[in-house]
Write a protein that binds this DNA or RNA. Sequence first.
RNA 1: GCGCCCGUAGCUCAGCUGGAUAGAGCAUCAGCUUCCGAAGCUGAGGGUCGGGGGUUCGAAUCCCUCCGGGCGCGCCA
Length: 561
Amino acid sequence: MKEQLRTLIEQALDRLRSAGTLPADASAAFVLERTKSREHGDFATNAALALAKPARTNPRALAQALVAALAPNALVEKVEIAGPGFINFFLGPAAYHQETRRVLDEGVRYGCNTTAAGRRTQVEFVSANPTGPLHIGHGRAAAVGDCLARALAASGAEVTREFYYNDAGVQIENLARSTQARAKGSKPGAADWPADAYNGDYIGDVAEAYLRGDRVEFENHVVTGAKNPDDIDAIRQFAVAYLRREQNADLAAFGVKFDVYFLESSLYGDGKVEETVRELVKHGHTYEEGGALWLRTTDFGDDKDRVMRKSDGTFTYFLPDVAYHLSKWQRGYQRAITELGADHHGSLARVKAGLQALDMGIPKDYPEYVLHQMVTVMRGGEEVKISKRAGSYVTLRDLIDEVGRDATRFFLIARKSDSQMVFDIDLARSQSNDNPVYYIQYAHARVCSVLRQLDERGLKWNRDNGLAKLARLDNEHESALMVEISRYPEVVEAAALNLEPHLIASYLRELANALHAYYHAHQFIVDDADLRDARVALAVAAQQALANGLDLLGVSAPEQM
RNA sequence: GCGCCCGUAGCUCAGCUGGAUAGAGCAUCAGCUUCCGAAGCUGAGGGUCGGGGGUUCGAAUCCCUCCGGGCGCGCCA
């Protein structure tokens, strides 16, 4: 709908250019947007305001010329010039009838676009180390990353979801030692308890399972507890397997599936780390100092140079990170989007600097990134402190169990990811009207209910007749709902383009509101068959948009509540 | 100290690639069910968009500065 209008305007601008009203090189960066108020029509553009200067004329005059150059279009009922030179487009009912038909024709595909068509895109998110259960912050990462992936896929991208984890570093040693201490009967606080150990109760569970000889399956691996508390290698393997399995189960329960699990250790195994060092040295952005090998990241905007190989010969985390992102590029992802906590923001600048230093033609904005801010958890009116070492924190599993998958996902996705948010567990779990997810789901279920009613009354909805009789829908609520529905494709596109999945959540609330209001104002199931068919057609279109939008959020669209 | 993010109604948050009277939910108050599900609808009150400058025809939005909060700034990950 919007695209058609935009094309119309572009064509008119071309005419003005060839007529000499506009200079041939006048750039056409103008905005076409939905109006806030219907008094200003359906869409407005600032094209005349934006192009007045290069045209060396005043905006109102240019607006008039532009309007005069517009080709007649069946969808546009009226065009007005307003204020300093806005051009307001009033669409006729036919435009919305066409759109409503499109919704029913396209079904689950309604709202898809091609703005990212054919681009091999990788979204990396969560990427938690296997040293403990996932907490609410990972939940936010999972919700944001997964919704982004869905929105990008709906925009035509070929999306791969990837989870990267460290399976070999210092923290894993720490995990192994913690588990071993537990297996030997020590506990946090005891004299022989390791200083930096993980104190959570789950370590005890891992140790017990190990001593029992439990069999753990995950990602095509099978690991069996060796029972021997002195075998640190076996303990390490088992603990990683155990926690990976738990994390995967939590993510599955959250409705998130990954295509690729990438192990940091593989970067050493296949020589990628060495290759990265070699390339960096070769391109001359490194130097040795104090026995360490440094990368001159300051050449690429970092505020200080970074050590890549420590004087003891081991690598800092920074180098495998670069090697990992290099592998993304080499695996053919034209776009890589990294979703991570804002506390890791600094590492991104380094990774990007590292990629540039490789001098391999990797774009400067590779990878793109989306940051999420911290989540404060409230329970019983008090903040729940998150501390992995202390072992007291709200796990993602707790939330899914207490709050439900749908509400948890919705809450975590509904806020812009780069603002901090408060997650009030009591509020989220309340099955009341405080809870926006139910409001939206209810709107969907409500249409299902109408369809059931139709059936119970022995009335058949004639889809084609309904679409043919859309002209019968002429009240305010009906036109408002048609407008809301027609916005859906624009919202999907904006969410994918700006990497802002929360837009979908806000939109769905507005769509649900339009549906609820309509439902209350008018009876859908009326005796007049034409009117009934038409109203049900509109309701079903709304249902489809709701279902499609909820699907992008990974939230279910129930047929009844 | 430096960098990034944030500061919008009592509370939780949208709006931010500049646009027309600043929005929603909750909370408060007042209404709405002989009727397809009231997990709903309608209405009211509530704002120096943290403060101050600047750019512009136009600023919640861009720039500067100050205040207040968060997170980073290791030969830790």
